[in-house]
Design a protein around this nucleic acid. Structure first.
Length: 254
DNA sequence: ATGGCTTTATGCTAAAGA
């Protein structure tokens, strides 16, 4: 089972990129983030053999899930705050595997309300992952976590020191989730530095490889036991009119 | 670098992203 995640930075602007990538890579499941609009092109994906479930929002955020297999949607929002209306979470069961797609808050600037919102959102996510662990539900969660786990995941740690993506508080939230027993799928196979999933549009970040690793797959023990590979596919980032993020692809046996 | 691009919006400048 091949599952992928990709922050597309507007599904409207990136539709042809996503369609050609699906046709070439043929994942079983693709998680999408930053749809950035209410219109979701479900018919385009259906014509390629993909069912879909979308949680869109006007102008900002928005997540979706595409699958070649049947989708049973479990949740369309992250539990824990009924007042939170931002579209950042989708949870479904596909082929007997629980799959969650997330677009975690950015959190900048850190002296605004956005940073405490980010930390509270990550606490709610940890609570959800804790409950699923307790039930021993095999789970893969993927998406844009907006967290740089370690210095080796960042081209210039000093420059990012005070940023919400690299602040100790944010990194501690990710570690707390890993400490529940989840595995960072990418680091099972690749311990090298300069393994990035995002490059800014500005200042020639892509040609200079000034990137950060902020898109992740975490696997429960049951799912991690099935992990065969996990790679970052840099190809889409090099295209004309690319998203600033590129996909990660994980393969699970059976 | 003082955010240098990119995207959305009952738009034509502002807000958000990372």
């Amino acid at each position: 089972m091949k599952i992928a995640t990709w922050n597309v930075n507007s599904i409207k602007s990136r539709l042809e990129h996503v369609k050609s990538w699906l046709a070439a890579q043929k994942p079983d499941v693709l998680l999408l983030q930053e749809l950035k609009g209410l219109d979701f092109p479900a018919a385009d994906f259906a014509s390629l053999g993909y069912k879909s479930a979308a949680v869109p929002q006007k102008a900002y955020n928005g997540v979706a899930l595409l699958s070649r297999h049947g989708i049973k949607v479990e949740l369309e929002s992250l539990p824990g705050d009924p007042a939170d209306e931002q579209a950042r979470y989708i949870e479904a069961t596909i082929n007997g595997l629980r799959i969650i797609g997330i677009y975690a808050p950015n959190g900048n600037p850190v002296d605004s309300g956005k940073f405490p919102y980010k930390l509270a959102w990550l606490d709610r996510l940890k609570t959800r992952l804790e409950a699923l662990r307790r039930e021993e539900i095999p789970l893969a969660i993927g998406g844009d976590f907006n967290i740089i786990p370690e210095p080796r995941d960042c081209y210039d740690p000093a420059a990012w020191a005070g940023d919400a993506l690299f602040r100790p508080e944010s990194r501690a939230k990710l570690r707390a989730m890993l400490n529940l027993g989840y595995t960072d799928a990418f680091r099972v196979f690749n311990r090298e530095p300069e393994q990035y999933t995002f490059w800014d549009y500005q200042a020639g970040a892509w040609p200079r490889n000034n990137g950060i690793r902020i898109d992740h797959f975490l696997l429960s023990p049951g799912a991690a036991d099935r992990l065969k590979s996990c790679v970052i596919d840099r190809e889409p980032r090099g295209r004309d009119k690319a998203s600033d993020h590129t996909p990660i692809v994980a393969e699970l046996s059976a």
